[in-house]
Nucleic acid binder design. Structure first.
Lengths: 208, 208
DNA sequence: TTGCAGTTCAAACATGCGTTTGATACGCTT
DNA sequence: AAGCGTATCAAACGCATGTTTGAACTGCAA
């Protein structure tokens, strides 16, 4: 097992420091918004290091994505009822997406949903497609095999849409609801809401 | 009634040509991504015109937003049941948000949800807050006054989240579902899905 | 010590950006 | 025709960006 490491601890070698800083800055500002100089400043290395260890900004971005499948999120889950499995997934997904449990790496991926970068294709294949497939299986578990595929797909969209909304619109939402803060309790409530809301919705639209 | 005008027709005067081109380019690329040079190229005017007629890129952006309330979308609607009113709003909202009926101006506003610009505050006050209030009223019409405010707010988020997902994640979704195209029929189906899905969800989470 | 490959560095380079400038053209009144 | 304010233009300015350069440093083998 990999030991829990605080994100403040920096590796010795320049390459890894760059990767860590890159995930932070790309996740905060996006591919275009992030600057090589800011990444190097946070990593405490010279700007030329980006082109020495990688081959420019874009290659650093690709490397920062760590294109390995998110196996744990989409791992087969056989315990409990179909409803419980779907609820658990939503809870886990919302937890990762929201501020608290959101690693720079996750933030980096989420941004890709609405701000395409040069890595859009790779990200789609490596993360989003498996995620959609997994969620589709979970929904199918609830509604059975007879429900039309188009309707199931729309249910998947509805769930993803709700889950990502909380993160992607958080700045605007904070202006609209200044008193609303996403602490552990509110995230838990939001996840439970999305699960209940969606389960009822799923059953309704596939009941014909 | 204002006559239907094709968006290809260009006004004579430089200022209006700039506004039209600005909505296009800002809507496609966002505030930072858009360049003054590209806007001027599309408008067919000199780059200096931006600083002559407005006062720099940011002022042009603000002017392009046309900060007038979207009165028609949030107009009081008393006909039919509460469910019908909510369904109608969702249909109208989704229709505007999706490609077909989406004016450059609407696109410009939608982008603000997840990509804050210097105009975030103004947009929140002028568009988003009234929109949330209106949708909150519609949800209240369905669930009554006893439902907890926090639960109603989450329902509003769920609905907005679903509606905006279709647009904001469309590039990624097109990679995941290449065969899926949003023609008039699919938009209609998506809107109906969101309405049914949400009505069932709303009733479920406020039934305790 | 010498030589060499691997790293790091300050500095410069080329490009694209928003903005400014000074000249020029146009329309209008006198 | 002369004068004047408005509008447009090509060109340049100042700045930030990604990238490159060539020198300096490091550790290790010969």
């Amino acid at each position: 097992m990999s030991p829990l490491t605080t994100q403040s601890e920096l590796p010795e070698n320049t390459r890894d420091r760059l990767l860590i800083a890159a995930r932070e800055v790309f996740g905060e500002l996006g591919f275009k918004g992030a600057t090589v100089r800011e990444i190097c400043r946070r990593a405490g290395v010279n700007v030329a290091a980006v082109n020495y260890h990688f081959n420019g900004k874009e290659a650093l971005f690709m490397a920062a994505l760590e294109l390995e499948p998110i196996t744990d999120l989409i791992a087969p889950d056989e315990s409990g009822s179909a409803e419980e499995r779907l609820t658990r997934f939503i809870r886990e997904f919302v937890g990762r997406v929201m501020e608290q449990g959101c690693t720079p790496h996750t933030r980096l991926l989420l941004r890709e949903l609405h701000e395409p970068s040069p890595a859009l294709d790779s990200i789609a294949k490596t993360f989003i497609v498996p995620l959609h497939q997994h969620l589709t299986r979970l929904v199918r578990g609830v509604v059975g095999d007879e429900a039309p595929a188009a309707e199931v797909r729309r249910c998947v969209f509805s769930i993803f849409g709700q889950c990502t909304y909380y993160r992607n619109s958080r700045e605007m939402n904070h202006l609209v609801y200044p008193e609303l803060h996403y602490d552990e309790q509110e995230i838990e409530a939001a996840a439970r809401h999305i699960a209940e809301f969606s389960l009822a919705g799923i059953k309704r639209v596939t009941s014909d």
